[in-house]
Every structure is written in C-alpha cells, then in structure tokens.
Nucleic acid binder design. Structure first.
Lengths: 131, 131
DNA sequence: TAATGATATTCATGAATTTGAATATTATGT
DNA sequence: ACATAATATTCAAATTCATGAATATCATTA
C-alpha cells in the first residue's frame, strides 16, 4: 500500500484537520444564520422557522450538522427544543469574517414573525398586558 | 417556477453567502497549512513543497482555490512565484478557531527542508558565510 | 392509549469537492 | 529556437454535500 510514502504530508496537514472541520460546518449560509439567531442566547426551533422562513426539516438538518460538530447543544423543554452555542468564541470567528467581507449582517430577529411556542405566547401576552 | 415561494428564505440566508464562501475555502487542512506558511510574509511555492511534503500539482491546486477566493495574491519573480496573504485579518480567524480547538499548531517552518529557489540558496550561502 | 404539536431522521438525487495523473504554460539560460 | 526549472491547468473517478419528500420520534394532552 506504500502508506509511508505520504507520511510526511499527512503529518504536516493532520494538525489542521480539527480547524478545517469547524470551517466546514460554518461554510453554509443557513448554518451561519442559525448561529446569528443564537447570538443573544438560546432559542427554540420554531423561532428559527419563523425568522428564516425555511421549512422545519431543512432547519433540523442544518441543526444536526451544527450539533454533531459540537458547536451547538440542545435542551428539551416540553414540546420545544432549545438550542444554544457551546462556545461563544464561535461568534468571534463570525465577527472577524464579517469584517473581512464588509457585508452588513442583518438583524435576524427583526423579521417580525411570531411562532406559537409557549415562550413566544407568554412574551406576546406580557407585551399586550404591559402596553 | 414559483420562485417567490422561497424569497423569504433566500433573502434571509443570502447575506451570509460571502462569509460562507470564505469558510468553505478555509475548510481544508492543506489550505490552512499553506496560510500558516504565509504567516510571516510571502513565500514561493517551492517552500510549500518542502515544508508540507506534498506534490507540486496538489499544492498548486490548493493555491488556486485560495487565489481565486482573493485570500492570497501572487507575484512572479523570475522562475518563482511568491504568494502572500491579501488581508492579514484572515490570521485572526485562524487564531480564534485554533484556540477553540485547543490543538497546538505546529511550526510549519521547522521542517528542516530546503528548496533550491534563489532566495533559499542565498539564505544558505549567507548563513554558511556568517556561521 | 390515541391524537397532536414540535422536532428529527431517512432516503434519493443532483451538484460540488477531492485528489491523482497527465499535460500545459511561462520565464530563463544557452 | 531549444532545453530546463517552476508552477499551473485539465481531466476523470471517487467521495461528499445539499436539499426536497416522506416518514419517524418524542413529549404532551385528552
């Protein structure tokens, strides 16, 4: 098999595999958008559907990629599953690359949608009662 | 075609395309290794061959990906082509992700190889004369 | 335990990426 | 012009990725 022929190359590149893996997970606009949604703390999947206007199954697939990489973690609360970022330094990565591109990132929470999860309903109720 | 059905989704994700593109380019260990080689300034391709122990054609392919993305630029000097990083902030990105992984990045310049490009030959000559 | 809401998984297909092999290009020296 | 050194490009096969459709799971409520 002559595996040893490439041993120098493999060992030279192998230490960068872990970094490359993180970059691969980040190399999809929907996954970046999801992380932006999680910037201010944990959110349930229904929020992501509402904010992004994407089908549930699609979002769930992208969540699976993020989850399996360890970048996000999930927590079940009744019917809803809440996701949060494991290591907030991932936002530093997004920040730097955002500065490099120079493209303004939209506020993913400004979409004006509302989902029907308990937390949203409570928030709406509170807002209505307050206003 | 019903293109408008997905318009909300497309517009929600589209602003992150540029970031995703950069991450995609970085999502390969050989390309990260090349950038590490360029950390201290421009280097010729022969250096990368020497340091990484990879075939020339392979390195050239990865250089093309980096070059076409705009992350690196090239400059010809006689027989050799020297590459340099366009925006040093790309190293901030590598730094943060490196901290997240916690994996020590090897010094890609410690390999002890020497190529036969004019600069290497001059350096060797100078070193020998100095020592 | 059956129905329902929220979310996840499986499957299939087309598109993109990886990477080795061969070949081309470009500049230099004779 | 020709040979050579340094680097780039093309091509093709294998693998991986993106994504839509359908279905499954898991917790809750009746």
């Amino acid at each position: 098999m002559n595996l040893n022929i490439m041993s120098a190359a493999i060992s030279a590149i192998q230490p960068f595999e872990a970094q490359a893996q993180i970059f691969k997970v980040l190399s999809h606009p929907a996954r970046i958008a999801i992380l932006e949604i999680l910037r201010d703390g944990e959110e349930c999947v229904c929020h992501m559907e509402a904010y992004l206007g994407l089908r549930q199954a699609y979002i769930s697939q992208q969540l699976a990629v993020l989850r399996e990489s360890g970048i996000i973690q999930d927590r079940r609360d009744g019917w809803n599953i809440f996701y949060r970022v494991t290591d907030p330094r991932i936002f530093e990565v997004l920040d730097v690359v955002q500065r490099i591109t120079g493209i303004e990132v939209p506020d993913v929470h400004q979409a004006g949608f509302h989902c029907t999860c308990p937390r949203c309903m409570t928030e709406q109720q509170v807002t209505n009662e307050e206003g």
